[in-house]
Design a protein around this nucleic acid. Structure first.
Lengths: 122, 122
DNA sequence: AACAGTAATAGTAATCATTACTATTTAGCG
DNA sequence: CGCTAAATAGTAATGATTACTATTACTGTT
């Protein structure tokens, strides 16, 4: 993987923010300062950065991939009202019984809690 | 919610299977016997059934919503090689520290383990 | 510093899952 | 049976993501 200015921009955009932006949001945040940046480039580099472990994809069910610049293992909360994603800094522990299955080998765990945030309480 | 024959078909198709089918897969499995069933009807009813808690959506990151006919709380394993989904029958426990946050109220938890199945081992 | 080779980009078109729309059908109640 | 609203079929539209291609720009070599 060869250096590219755009990839650095994109990585910084995700790392520099505590929200969990989608490709579209990253593109919007960079486009004003970099009018020639292409949305396809954002998509491709987010995928590359996720593959190389520099950012983490989050699949919340809103039909868009979000990315987290904090790769330290932790969980997320997703509000069913406003779709906001909140970091929960507890380290999920993969149970031994799951690690020792014959059927498959677990490499990572993703845990999402769903509910309602204070603003969206029913 | 009024009874419909189509909804019953769709519910049975998801409940009657241990795979975790997408709307498309449900449609395919029913279309031969029910040539007038519409894909839109499948999508709408899967969403309705999920909302009423009769089936559970799973977001694995493959950009398609899968559904699980088993609503008993449990986890899933997703193979990074073949994308197969395997049930893991351990009941995830929502940690007290998460249940007692002021910021939000957790209603459910979804945990997915990622790795490689035996067939896709590297 | 020019050169070559090849990965990366920009810009646009295409794809794929899902949702929206509308005329028609049907559940279910009086 | 007949009414009314909910549900469906079939098709069109949307929205996120990927594919494609000509051009640009890293990086190792002379």
């Amino acid at each position: 993987m060869r250096y590219s200015h755009q990839r650095e921009l994109i990585l910084d955009a995700v790392k520099g923010v505590k929200t969990h932006p989608t490709a579209d949001m990253v593109y919007d945040s960079l486009h004003a300062e970099n009018p020639h940046l292409s949305l396809g480039t954002v998509y491709r580099n987010l995928a590359l950065l996720a593959m190389s472990g520099e950012i983490t994809p989050i699949y919340t069910g809103d039909n868009k991939v979000h990315y987290d610049g904090d790769t330290d293992p932790h969980c997320h909360f997703v509000c069913k009202g406003c779709s906001k994603i909140i970091d929960i800094f507890i380290t999920p522990k993969i149970p031994d019984e799951v690690l020792h299955k014959e059927e498959f080998k677990v490499e990572e765990e993703k845990t999402i809690f769903y509910g309602r945030c204070r603003d969206c309480a029913v």
